[in-house]
């Protein structure tokens, strides 16, 4: 089988999983107590019952719960139309984010906000990977030295520190030192975004927090993987040949240690995404995480449905990329 065939097969594999996920979300919304129409209507002012009933029926028809003749639409039909909308990138209108009384289309909100999340995550993922590699190599090559012990201990402390609290502590520290809390405000996001110096100023603390969060997790991995490999016979052979340490570590040990590291990082992406939600919320960073959390706090059902479809999709795509990276890293892998 060719590489192309493998990629196509793995891509198609995402479809049933996504169907399962949407079905689960849909079922959860349907079995949950409370009437979404009542949630949607909120505190509507009505003197008489029929005024309320009229508003209720209009809203229910609009939400697709009742058809034009006020019969309940079976859940299966609603699920089909939901998936159909999804395939047309129509995620519905938000209930919480409104403009002139009308809900903003969720696909519009997401395409506007995605850039913030992507900038934050890509930057901190890159930094944490780099630092984790450095720390892992330092610890593993000098096992049980002072540096190894203190780095491992620091990683353990960081690993046990709740990420949101780490962010809060960074905020406190920066407030004490520079009188700057790093909570994003309006002038950080003036367009053009990438020419705005304030944007970078407010990017520092969230990136730092998220980097630390990913770092403590990855450095442990890199260290234990490298230690495992440094014990192998071919490393002894390489050393016996008279290669210098640098060549042994980077050419022989590190490349072989990469595979399990890539696997675990790929599989831990949901955790990293959740971390990004926390950091964004603490620093008021207006990415997808903040949108999701605020939507959830104000019971914005369509928004929650949308984010709960998008985050798993992102994860599945990331795992697909992981699997493809495998093939390039390890020539032994048969696809």
């Amino acid at each position: 089988m060719s590489l192309k065939g493998f990629i196509i097969r793995r891509t198609i594999y995402i479809i049933p999983v996504m169907l399962g996920i949407t079905l689960m979300n849909f079922t959860l919304i349907n079995v949950s107590p409370g009437d979404p129409v009542i949630v949607r209507l909120g505190l509507i002012q009505c003197d008489r019952d029929d005024c309320y009933n009229l508003a209720y029926n209009t809203e229910a028809i609009e939400m697709g719960l009742l058809d034009r003749d006020l019969y309940t639409v079976p859940w299966f039909n609603r699920y089909i139309s939901f998936v159909n909308d999804l395939l047309h990138f129509d995620l519905g209108d938000s209930w919480y984010y409104t403009q002139a009384g009308e809900g903003i289309p969720i696909s519009q909100i997401i395409s506007e906000r995605a850039v913030y999340t992507i900038v934050l995550n890509v930057l901190s993922f890159f930094f944490s990977l780099l630092l984790a590699t450095a720390i892992g190599v330092v610890s593993a090559t000098r096992q049980n030295s002072f540096w190894d012990r203190s780095l491992t201990f620091a990683m353990l402390l960081g690993y046990s520190m709740p990420l949101f609290w780490l962010a809060k502590l960074l905020m406190l520290l920066s407030f004490q030192l520079f009188n700057f809390t790093g909570v994003a405000n309006k002038d950080a996001f003036k367009k053009p975004l990438f020419l705005n110096p304030n944007f970078y100023k407010y990017l520092i603390l969230p990136t730092l927090a998220l980097t630390l969060g990913g770092l403590v997790f990855m450095a442990r991995l890199v260290r234990s993987q490298l230690l495992e490999i440094l014990r192998q016979d071919y490393i002894t052979t390489a050393k016996a040949k008279g290669l210098d340490n640098r060549a042994v570590i980077y050419k022989h040990a590190f490349r072989n240690g990469l595979l399990p590291i890539v696997t675990i990082i790929g599989n831990s992406l949901p955790g990293l995404l959740a971390g990004s939600v926390m950091i964004e919320s603490v620093f008021g960073w207006p990415g997808l995480g903040t949108v999701f959390l605020e939507g959830a706090l104000f019971r914005d059902y369509p928004m929650m449905m949308a984010t709960n479809t998008i985050f798993p999709l992102l994860f599945l795509v990331a795992r697909l990329l992981t699997d493809i990276t495998y093939v390039f890293i390890d020539p032994r892998i048969k696809y």
Partner: peptide
């Protein structure tokens, strides 16, 4: 295995928030 696959693709923190909001009236 298929069920685990589906559950594993959801970030636990986000899925828990989704569920808590839906079921907070129970």
């Amino acid at each position: 295995q298929r069920v685990i696959e589906i559950l594993y693709s959801m970030p636990g923190f986000i899925l828990m928030i989704f569920i808590i909001v839906l079921f907070e009236d129970v």
